[in-house]
Design a protein around this nucleic acid. Sequence first.
DNA 1: GCGCACTCCTAAACCGGTATAGGCCAATGC
DNA 2: GCATTGGCCTATACCGGTTTAGGAGTGCGC
Lengths: 342, 342
Amino acid sequence: MTTSPRVTIKDVAARAGVSKGAVSLAFNHKPGLSEVTRDRIFEAARQLGWAPNLAARSLAGRRVDVVGLAICRPARLLGLEPFYMEFISGVESVLTEHSCSLLLRLLRTVEEEVGLQDSWWRGKHVSGSILVDFRADDPRVAAVERLGMPVVAVGHPSLTGGLTSVWTDDASAVTEAVRYLAALGHRRVARVGGAAGLGHTAIRTAAFDAAARGLELSGAWQVATDFSGEAGARATRSLLTASASDRPTAIVYDNDIMAVAGLSVASEMGLSVPGDVSLLAWDDSQLCRLTHPTLSAMSHDVHGFGAEVARTLFGVITGGGGGSHPVPTPVLTPRGSTAPPR
Amino acid sequence: MTTSPRVTIKDVAARAGVSKGAVSLAFNHKPGLSEVTRDRIFEAARQLGWAPNLAARSLAGRRVDVVGLAICRPARLLGLEPFYMEFISGVESVLTEHSCSLLLRLLRTVEEEVGLQDSWWRGKHVSGSILVDFRADDPRVAAVERLGMPVVAVGHPSLTGGLTSVWTDDASAVTEAVRYLAALGHRRVARVGGAAGLGHTAIRTAAFDAAARGLELSGAWQVATDFSGEAGARATRSLLTASASDRPTAIVYDNDIMAVAGLSVASEMGLSVPGDVSLLAWDDSQLCRLTHPTLSAMSHDVHGFGAEVARTLFGVITGGGGGSHPVPTPVLTPRGSTAPPR
DNA sequence: GCGCACTCCTAAACCGGTATAGGCCAATGC
DNA sequence: GCATTGGCCTATACCGGTTTAGGAGTGCGC
């Protein structure tokens, strides 16, 4: 098979009987060309099936239509986490409107990510990036500020330094969750949290402690996990093995897959939900409506969150933006898995 | 804040006291440089924090370390589908080893995708692509052949023409699933299938029909959905509303989220699983082990599947490869949701 | 002393666009 | 009639790499 010889701007120019400059002008909708010439150029390009070479275009200084997203989690775990795919699909829904693509990369450490963002930016491979999974004293803050790279940080301003950030108020949401359970009459409450190193996990942990103290609960447990269903199941099992008078009567989970796992552990242990133990999920993908009983959750429009992040990034790239953009706090959505304790 | 002036190959060359050509030679590990010069160049680059500009590099003819993946499904639906994220994470696990990134784009139609792949390739933005979700007479086959673009097609060879393909034997798997249910004693079996336009759905549909006929089942229903939990729930509800003597006693689902939904519908209708109806899921993410009862499934290493696709693509890009690469057929994994009918 | 091969390196062309200074020509002002 | 203006377009210098032809220096055989 003969690979079609690549058609360049020069071919189009020749065919239309103009210079390359004219073709460039036409394709970037800049003034300085007559209507007829413009049409002739487009017609020639159409006939030859020409599309501008993005590498050349970005080399010559124009913005490139790609934004970066690097995620530091083991690839295996990521596939199981409903949050990210939904987040990405939200990001994509906005990028698509701007004919923009997402450059995705999974790595192991933040240090690797610093290097990657660096070469993405220096190499003009992206016009900006989305940064996620902030931890305390995150090295990316200083790195991208030094580069002058347009980014949006997904995380609480206390973690993201001076970067433009989009965030949900995790502390308030945790507080609301605990208050709700306390209002139902629960006095012994546990939380199955996410990965310990993550900034938002720390925020939630602190908020949970504060809320438990403020409400003078008689028992408050917290366990860290890796967000996987297996870890959620393990955590639940160990929380529920204590005697009925000592174990928690309500458990809050940091995502929904762990809550589903918890539900299954409860039934495996012969405990009824919400009779013996109430469960409260987080993020609320459609999974929560597919279990039996359905899962109460701190509900959160993850898709919309991703979309907002993308919109904010476009703002930063075009030189505007900056500042801190809170998105709506997750709202409590009671369903079948929470009730007063027996 | 002052954006750091970009450092280019020229700066590195000046600092190391050599020409730009020498720097290029060093960084591409080509022969023709003495050990000392090479070291001096690397040291200079390190001090200046230089990374080669990928746009310039790809413009000048070298392969670029990016592969493309375009998915034609509504962004909203995609977030809910565990398959894709797991697939992508498998792809990434191999790409990462090669310091390669994934360019991801969601679109609405295959026609759009043809245009996108075209400009990705012509624009040298990717060195190859992964094509998914084939349908009958897929226009992408001819398009990428015309371009001479390296791609791997995820789909049965009957759908992917002469393209290098990686595929699972859906027909055998469906047949095995139906045989298994029949062997348990089921005579009325249904299948809740995926999106009607998709090639692999058509293959499964035909295989299901053939198997049902071959085994002389007394009832065989098939319903098409959009893969969402809601659609799975709806389909299950309508299948199970018939009287006990008319409705199916076993249902096969095309993914696992629909099976979870089906499980919940059964219990909402007061039917016991597997007593009144057996359920068999597909793809088998960890979800299937988290329900109660656990879901029997046609189990499939989606992560490994993605990894194999990526490996194959590298083969094609480096000029080798071609042909058809079957990956292991999904294997039946009986769990708690299947049993002989009452 | 000369030719020859070999190693190490440089200069310059090239990739395919964008940006810009300036050329050409008709219309306008005085 | 001649300078000025303005619209339309071309020529050319970039962007930051890769690639190649070839030059400078060294060692060696005869």
